[in-house]
């Protein structure tokens, strides 16, 4: 079925009351193209050979942490509490405000 929802700071709110038989399921969402951030900011790239071996090694160490953050398995954790959800929403508001101002997070 198709229903209208409102997206607000990371949360989808249905326009009419619905009860679900399952607590977890996937669904398709139509998002207007114009609200999606697509513009990737680009920055000048520096030639790594300009840096000393120590600097390159430090960059490699930091990159390894970044790679691990994307690939490492994350253990199961407890569901979020209402308080934690509210906190997320608060920080989403901060992030959204900054994006609207054209600022980096």
């Amino acid at each position: 079925m198709q229903v209208e929802v409102i997206y607000h700071h990371g949360t989808l709110t249905f326009n009419r009351p619905l009860r679900f038989r399952q607590a977890h399921f996937t669904m398709q969402v139509d998002i207007p193209e114009q609200v999606v951030e697509t513009e990737e900011v680009s920055f000048p790239a520096f030639d790594l050979s300009l840096f000393s071996a120590e600097v390159r090694a430090e960059i490699a160490r930091l990159e390894a942490i970044q790679r691990l953050a994307i690939s490492q398995p994350v253990p199961k954790v407890e569901e979020e509490t209402e308080e934690q959800r509210l906190r997320w929403a608060a920080f989403e508001l901060r992030n959204e405000t900054r994006r609207e101002q054209g600022r980096d997070l």
Partner: peptide
């Protein structure tokens, strides 16, 4: 700044330069 620490933690557009700047600063 927060945006630089985020650059260091998560690979995104600004990360390579933030990583290099921080590594240079330490050296």
């Amino acid at each position: 700044d927060v945006n630089i620490v985020v650059d260091l933690c998560v690979a995104r557009a600004g990360s390579p330069n933030s990583l290099a700047a921080v590594a240079l600063a330490r050296e």
